[in-house]
Structure formats: structure tokens, C-alpha cells
Computed example of a mutant assay.
Amino acid sequence: MRSFLTPRQLAAAFSLLILGLLVTAAQQFRLFERGWFVLQEWRHAAEWRDRSIWLPDYRVAIEARPIEGLDDVSALTYDPDRHSLFTVTNQHSELIELSLDGHIIRRITLVGFGDPEAIEYISPGMYVITDERLQRLIKVKLDENTRSIDASQAQQLSLGIGLSGNKGFEGLAYDTAGQRLFVAKERDPMRIYEIHGFPHTNPEKPIAVHVVDDPKRDARLFLRDLSSLQYDDRSGHLLALSDESRLVLELNAEGRPISSLSLLRGMQGLRKSVPQAEGVAMDNDGNLYLVSEPNLFYVFRKQTD
């Protein structure tokens, strides 16, 4: 005898299916962890605000300004000596210097870099650029007269860590006091590595490179990917930018998330969501700069009471 589900049973089965899909989506997008973090951020605001960057206090000052002449910006770093910003383009292999309001100052041709994806200021005239797919870190030098840089003439470090196609080294940050280079692997798996000994800055000492990672810390990052990093020398905290999560996350010295800046419409004064955030940088005054593909420029400033 054929049996049929009653309307009530069908409704119950459908409700369970929808509930299962919602739970799966929540797990995939780390919504439970993110919700718990928002609660903790609110509870500890008074305790953490004065000894952190404290991203909730930031509001957008320049929103989605097109960088004329560019169409594939990737990464961002602040040069405290020149008081300017640098980004790279991977389609045309260029190093671009930008003013603090998002205008091109100069363009430098990159030769032999493959897939340049991130750049980080190290010291006056010295930077590190990543080749994402090959997982190369390339130390470069430039001055006022530099018009092109050849990777074959530069100091390099290759790291074959968890190779996964176009999901390689996506972001860089540098701790000047600790001489640590932070390297973000985008995903599959998502990781933040600490590189000690590169770039090699003392020719009188032998090269000794040490790589440190912390899978437990990285598992606490309720982010779907990593696009960029920024280290704050004043607080000792690290900023992690996620394109897919539309979020900038502040990590304390122990690697625990303590504050966040949302890149969604209606948050932080944004009229529209940031479409594809690729790079974040911070200047000496604590202003945040952000670039989004294809060529959008943002500035966030901290609001004071």
C-alpha cells in the first residue's frame, strides 16, 4: 500500500531542510563565531579601546575614489619617508606610487616578477614584493630615479608551503622592532606566517631564515580569506583584511581578534559596500587606506570624542 506524507509532515520536512541549509551556510560563513565576537567586542570596548587601534571608531573619509589610469590594483603599503603609498598591479606588472589622496605619482616597471600580489615597506628605499603563485618573496630597492626593477637582480626567498594554485601569498606586513615579516596565505588553508631573517639586512651576518606559523590562532580567525595585512608598531597589533568577509580584523599580540571594521554598506559611514578589498595600509597618524579592485581608493579616519 502506498503511503503519502500529510501536509503537516511535508511542512515539517521542508522546515528541517531549510534549517539544515541555514546551519550549513552559517558554518561556512563563520556566522556563529562572528556573532560571538561582536558581543565580546561590545562588552570589552571600554577595556580595549585605549590600548588598541580600535577599528569601530573609524569612519570613511574618502569613498570609492577611482584611481585614474589603473585597472587592477592589488595590495597597499605606506612609506613613512616619502609620505606616500605603494601598490602593485599583477596584470601589467607595475609598482605604483600613490599620493595619500589616491593619485598616481609614478609608475615603475617590474620585470620577471610573474604574479606580483603584495608589497611591504621595510626601511628607507627597501621593500618586499610577493610573487603569489610561486610563493617568492623578493626584496627590492628603489630611489627617486628608479624606473624599472628586475627580479633576477634582487634577493629572493622561495617558500613551497601548501601550494594551491592561485591561492598563495596575498598579503605582507612588517614589524620593524621585531624584524618579523608577516605573510598571509589567502586560503586552502588560510595562514599567517612569520618570517624571521628575510629580508637579509646585515651582510656581516650569515643568512638564517626561520618560519613560524600558528594554526590554532589562524583557526580563530572567522574570515573566509586573507587579502592583506598591516602591522601597527605602536600597539603591536596586526590588521587582517578579508575580501570575502568584507571585514578588517584587529588582532592583539596574542593573535586574538579584538576589534573590527565592516566594509558593508551602511557601516563605518559607507554608502556602498567595498566590492573587492585587496590592500590595507596605515600611516603614522593612524589613518587607514584601502584599495579595492579594479581601481577604487578609500580612506578611513578615527573619530575622536
Rank of each mutant, 00 (worst) to 15 (best):
L251W: 07
H237A: 07
N90Q: 06
L288S: 01
T6C: 03
N166H: 13
K302N: 03
R34Y: 12
S93A: 13
A11M: 05
P124A: 08
G165V: 09
I108G: 05
M267G: 02
K205C: 03
A253R: 15
A219S: 13
Y231S: 03
R107W: 02
H200F: 04
L157F: 14
V274Y: 06
I62M: 03
W54S: 01
P257S: 14
T87W: 03
N287E: 01
A253K: 15
P80T: 00
S148A: 13
T130A: 09
P215V: 05
M126S: 12
V274M: 07
S152V: 04
S148Y: 14
P56I: 05
A26G: 14
I122H: 06
L22P: 03
G266C: 07
R133L: 12
R49C: 05
G114P: 06
G35V: 08
P206R: 06
P275K: 11
L76K: 01
D305P: 15
T146G: 08
G236S: 09
D115R: 11
G35A: 09
L134P: 01
E63A: 10
R220M: 11
L249I: 11
P215H: 07
Q179F: 05
L98F: 04
R301D: 00
E41I: 07
D188A: 12
I67M: 12
E144G: 14
P56A: 07
N166G: 11
E132D: 09
D79N: 14
W54V: 00
A13H: 08
E170K: 06
E170Q: 10
E204R: 09
L134F: 07
S3P: 02
D57N: 07
T146N: 04
H200W: 10
G165I: 09
S15E: 10
A13T: 02
R180N: 11
A184S: 07
L100F: 00
Y121P: 04
D188Q: 12
H83T: 00
R217L: 08
I122L: 06
E204K: 13
P66G: 03
A177S: 09
L39D: 12
